[in-house]
Amino acid sequence: MMAELTTPDVAIDGATVSEKPPVRTRGEIAKRGLSSPWASLVAVILAVVWTIPTAGLLVTSFRPSLDINKTGWWTVFTNPDFTLDNYKQVLDTSQTSSLTPYLINSIVITIPAVLLPILLACLAAYAFAWTKFKGKNVLFVAVFALQVVPIQVTLLPLLTLYVKLHLNGTFWAIWLSHTMFGLPLAIFLLHNFMREIPGELIEAARVDGAGHVTIFFRMMLPMLKPALAAFGIYQFLWVWNDLLVALTFAGPGTATAPMTKFLFDLTGSRGNAWYLLSAGAFVSMIIPVIVFLSLQRYFVRGLLAGSVKG
C-alpha cells in the first residue's frame, strides 16, 4: 500500500489510467502493494525502530557497570566488552538490591491469582449459560457491565476492608483483589464459549438424569480448554505485569511485593543505576515473553475478548 501512496498517479486513478507507462495487467497492479521494495523497506524500518529500544537495554544489561554510564551501548559494536555481573548482582540474595525475593513473590502472587478467578468464573459462567433461575438475565447483564468499572474506584474502600479483616500486607489481599477484578471478564468470556456448545448435548444428559454438577465436570470442563487458555494467559500477563494493585496492597519490603514494585521503587530511588535496572527489567520480562511466544494464538483471543478490562 505504501508504494501506491508514493506514486500518486497510479494510486488515485488505479488501473483505469492505462496510458501511464509502464502498462501493467490488473493482476500485477493488485499484487504490487506487497512485493514492492518500498513496502518491504517501510516494514523493515518499522520493525527495526520497534526493536531498538529493547535491544539497547538488553545490550546494556550485559555491559560492565562502569562502561554503561560512560559510553553509549552502541559503542559495543566497536569495543565489545561483556559481563554477566549485572545479572549476578540482581540475583544475588545476599545483596540488598536483590531481585530474587520479589521474583518469588511474583510467582506466589500470580499462580493463585490466575487459578482462583478461572475456577470461580467457570462455575458462574456455566450457571449463566445452562441453568435456569430467577433474575438470571439481569444478573448477567450486571456482571457484564462490571467490566467497565476502573479498579481505581475500588482501591481505597478495599484497602480499608482488608485492614479491618487483618488481611492487609498479606498475599490474600493481592490474590483476592486480582480475583475480584478478573471475574467479570472471565465470566463473560467463558459464558460466550459455553453458549457455543450445542444445547441438545446438555438436554440429553439432563434427560439421562445427570445433575448440573456432573454435567459441569464431565462435559463442560474438557470442552473449555481453549477458552481457559485464552483467559488464563490474559490474566497471567495482567497479574504478572500489574503495578497498581501491587503498590496499593503489597506489604513493605520483600514481604509480598512483586518485581514490578521493586523495579518501580528502583527507578525512583536509583534512577541512574542502569546496570541494576537493565538486568532487573529483563529478569522480569523473560517469563511473560516465553509464555507469550509459546501461546500467542490463545493470547490474541484473550486480548480481543478482554479489551475493556482495567
Binding site: 462455575l123 441453568t131 444478573l139 462490571l146 468499572v149 475500588t154
Partner: peptide, 25 residues
C-alpha cells in the same frame, strides 16, 4: 435452582470487591 450454587461465590466476591467499593467511593 442449582444455578444459585454455581453463581453464588462469584456474586459474593463481586459484591464485596467491586459493587460495594464503587458505591463507597
Amino acid at each position: 435452582r442449582a444455578g444459585w450454587w454455581f453463581v453464588g461465590p462469584s456474586l459474593v466476591l463481586l459484591a464485596i470487591g467491586l459493587v460495594y467499593p464503587a458505591l463507597k467511593t
